[in-house]
Design a protein around this nucleic acid. Sequence first.
DNA 1: GGTTTTAACT
Length: 580
Amino acid sequence: MSTAQTVLALLQGCNTLRRLKAIHARVFVHGLQSDPSISAKLLHFCAVSVSGCLAYARTLFDRIECPQTHDWSSIIRGFAVGASPREALLYYNGMLGSSFSFADSHSFSFALKACERVGDEQKCREIHGTVIRSGYEMDVVVCTNLMRCYVGNGLVEVAQKVFEGMSVRDLVSWNSMISCYSRAGLHHEALGLYRRMRKENVGVDGFTLVGLLSCCVHVGALNMGVELHRRASREGFLGNIYVANALIDLYGKCGDLAEALFVFNGMPKRDVFTWNSMITAYGVNGCADEAVLLFRQMLREGVQPSSITFLGLLLGCSHRGLLDKGVEFFHMMSSKFNLRPEIKHYGCMVDLYGRAGKLEKALEIIGTSPFLVDPVIWRTLLGSCKIHQNVRIGEIAIKNLVQLGACNAGDCILLATIYAECNDKQGVARMRRLIKSQGIRTTPGWSWIEIGNQVHRFFVDDQSHPDRDEIYRKLEEVIYRASLAGYVDSKFQLIMPDLTCEGHLESSSKYHSEKLAITFGLAGTPDGTNIRIVKNLRICRDCHSFAKFVSQAFSREIIVRDRVRFHHFKGGVCSCKEYW
DNA sequence: GGTTTTAACT
């Protein structure tokens, strides 16, 4: 065996930087430093391996007289995934200017990865141009990276164009497009892609299932999730821990705790995601006691909790009103587990104290937060002020929201409602003026309902559904039957009929989206079927009351997942016990 | 020598 071959063999088995340096010394002793295959191997190890060293890689690279394409790729890759992706782009530019080498699919892919991390939209387009000029436009891996890079820069439409333009797509490209839609918040589009995959007979793997399940969670598409669960089971993916974790999350966030627990119990191996998903599932469904029991079991089994574990626990405590327990967990984080509470944990504490009526204490928590205060935390406080009709602290909250430039119509409406409930007409008028003067935009409210595998979305007073005439006729009937059961139409009841949960101020809206969705569900599913609604905002008093009486009048269980929690309506009562 | 996956305060 020649010395060069011996060195290459040594490199093959090398797994530490110390060993590598020893090999490097040997390379010098034998005068092999200019052997291109050896320097390439050395460089690749230093730039890419976890036990490598980027600074050392840079030294090695600088010593290569005529770097070849794979040398450039290694150094670009190292920096692209490391601490300074900007530097990767500098090397990419260097490669383009070099006369010894040319860019190939690998170097393009790594440069795009760097570009995605840097967040340079212009550079992304520029690389795209070079890709086309270099004839790599049809390369599957390059296109996949282009898609990711565009989405990372907020250009999902361009990513979609790249995807549609591909002449050959492999499963990774499909999975990546699903992930791109998901990152852009276009969950419905991602689920639409799955329909296309079925039509075009593209199979699925664990990546596909996890991506799709996550989309189902976001839009509350339980039926679709159940179908994916069946498919996962049929095709042997239930042993995939990612898939099983995503299923627990799906069932938890769709209000089916029994099924979540069934998946959890069936897992031979669990990681911290598994425990966190199940604890959070209990938390969001208002089962704090179960969440705490599970947490204890987690510790008994020797799993180290993460900060997310505590978020699930705190969430559970605040929705159940377990003030002392929540405070205990908050302190336990740092004292027992060396975890620093993050801004979201402070948010939970504000919620916890606020809901319990301790608004001064909630305000104090905001003051002690070492983080830059965000709008969400003030909005949380404002929500508590609404529950406890506290004008003074409500005004502090809105002032801070205005200062942060984050005050939205929903916030103004919340405070206006507090004023109205305290019969402060001037206060209500001030809020109206604030909305007008600041040109504050309202968030349109919408509700989803899934019938079969189709998700139907309704806006307030929606006119876009093809069956709208029939839906509105049915709605009149539903309101009539609900009122026989005791429902009082809000039009005669509210102090401010135009200040409502869906944020419509100017034109007094008649039918909130959940009323339309519930009606559509009653008409479109067999008697006795549960009706599941997902809503982007909080449910308002009127719709809450409506849902209660409908559940009684039609003997249906109605499950509404609003922006923050579940309401299970059954026989005229709601699981939230009027506390939300 | 490369590409795709999960949970998180209102």
